[in-house]
């Protein structure tokens, strides 16, 4: 089994952190293997941003993602850039309020209100965690307990409760 997951959005949305949590969940809390890579630009905020995670039951050879099985689109720029990949992907998640998809892709995509849900929790910054909840549910790549454990270990203690709430809200979307 080899699953390629791509998170795409803009800097500041927690794209890389999302990939990190997924990678950590797999690597530390399951016997499976995961490799996380990221596009790394000079800008840390605002620019386009991608992070990839390859999950496999054997050691990952090349970590480079070319045909993502799962594509998470968090900005219009990312969606436009990756529309063809989205067409080929077996699972697409997007933020319904930020991203407009081509009709054929929209039909199969999980278009969900990540940002709006986070705003509902009072902190837009946890939109990515809402997304991770939805992703975990929809993708079935990694057990929910592993994701929750990785999330708990990654975020600051002071925001743990909020993050767990956001994850849960995402899983229920």
């Amino acid at each position: 089994m080899r699953k390629e997951v791509r998170f795409a959005g803009f800097g500041g949305q927690g794209v890389i952190l999302s990939a990190f949590i997924l990678g950590r969940a797999v690597s530390v809390h399951t016997p499976m293997h995961a490799t996380m890579t990221q596009s790394y630009g000079p800008e840390s905020r605002g620019g386009s941003c991608e992070a990839d995670v390859v999950v496999g039951d054997a050691e990952i050879d090349t970590p480079m993602v070319t045909h993502p099985d799962v594509l998470v689109l968090l900005s219009q720029e990312a969606a436009t850039k990756h529309m063809d990949q989205a067409r080929a992907a077996s699972l697409v998640l997007s933020d319904v309020d930020l991203v407009h998809l081509d009709d054929d892709v929209a039909q199969k995509a999980h278009q969900l209100p990540f940002t709006r849900t986070a705003d509902g929790l009072g902190r837009r910054i946890v939109a990515n965690v809402v997304m991770l909840g939805a992703f975990t549910n929809a993708s079935q790549i990694v057990p929910r307990e592993a994701m929750e454990a990785a999330l708990r270990e990654t975020v600051k203690a002071s925001t743990r409760e909020l993050n767990m709430k956001a994850f849960d809200a995402g899983a229920r979307l």
């Binding site: 690597s27 530390v28 490799t35 990952i60 970590p63």
Partner: peptide, 10 residues
């Protein structure tokens, strides 16, 4: 190299 440097794994 940059990829190995930045890549995360177990």
């Amino acid at each position: 190299d940059e990829v190995v440097g930045h890549m995360h794994e177990r």
